[in-house]
Amino acid sequence: MKYKFGAFLLATLGTGYAYSKYQAHKEHQSQSSWLISDAIKVLKPFPPIKSVADYQKLYQASEQPYALPKNIQLQFGFKARPDNADVIELNEFNEDNERIIFYVHGGAYWMQPIYFHYAMLHHLAKELNARIVMPIYPKAPAHHAPEVHDMILDSYKQLLAEEGVKPENITFMGDSAGGGFQLAFMQKLRDLDADLLPRRAILLSPWLDVTMTNPAIDAIQPLDPMLNTGQLRFQGEKYAGPLAPSDPLVSPIYGDSSNLPPIDVFTGTHDILFADAKRFKSLALEHDWDVNTHIYPKMLHVFSSLPIIPEAKESLAEIIDIIADAD
């Protein structure tokens, strides 16, 4: 799903400046973050699935190969790997493989990466002198969790097979579905071969439980301008395919996160997935897992990918410090 910047700006600017300033002050958040939340209510970036026709359209889209947009190539320098067109890279800032971000993008496992993914990753690459590697995994509903795990494992092993690439130089990152996947993937890697694990992981608004059964979600739903509990539950079931939605490969909150690298979770309180981020934090404290949770009041889903808001800039600065300090 691509954001249309003209529509985005029109919707944002359509809200009265004085009113938005008042509301933002009242809610104790930045004016720009309040405006974006209000605009998202109008734009509805995740199309509703209300009919068989809606589903069939999305099914057909999930069968199509991904083509890296020309504007992304020109503006940010991302390229498909010459030996694997399903892996997108940015290698402009670091060619010695001393700092790599292995990124799995979000979109409920149904959608391709959007402009804001690339803009955020370009910023991180530039600030950290890092190489970005992002597998474009097969999408639901035509494809399911086992296929996604197989593809990303192959992509990761391909990366490790390159000269000079070591797991201790790699940070796993992911947003939303991609964040949930990275936790499930690390649990799987630990069981396959702990030597494959990366240096650390950073999860942005991770989707940790596709069953969406946490009762705390209900109180957050009216505050979330972006996500819908029922639709996510449906999309999660389709992504799971032959697996149960509660299988740790699909919903890693039900898995064992012991003996994993340090994990930093970034989450906002106006995101329905915040409920499970809090639950994961409690589990980490109970089991002594190495998890640090960064909670941003009033922030919406994957707010870190919206660098025009101060809270996003603050979170990205934190992320940059975390990765840099790990060296």
Rank of each mutant, 00 (worst) to 15 (best):
A317R: 15
L160T: 02
H301K: 07
S315Q: 04
D224G: 09
E314W: 12
E89K: 06
H149V: 07
A240M: 06
F116G: 11
I132S: 00
L10Q: 08
P47S: 05
R199V: 10
Q73F: 06
F280Y: 09
N228R: 12
R233S: 06
Q23K: 13
A145N: 03
A177M: 03
I170D: 01
P242K: 06
I72R: 00
A142E: 07
H294C: 09
L306C: 13
I202V: 10
K70G: 10
A119E: 14
A85V: 11
A140R: 01
S20G: 07
G268N: 04
K70N: 15
P242Q: 06
A184M: 07
P69M: 08
S176R: 01
M1W: 09
L9T: 15
D327F: 11
A324R: 15
L121N: 05
A108N: 01
E286N: 15
R99A: 06
P261V: 10
Y115N: 14
H28E: 13
Y137S: 04
I253T: 01
P245F: 02
Q235E: 14
A130H: 00
V104I: 09
A130W: 00
K298R: 15
I322C: 07
V133H: 02
T267V: 12
Q182C: 09
L192A: 12
H123A: 13
T12Q: 08
N169P: 04
Y55E: 09
I220D: 03
Y254C: 04
D38V: 10
E63A: 13
D83E: 09
S30Q: 00
E237V: 08
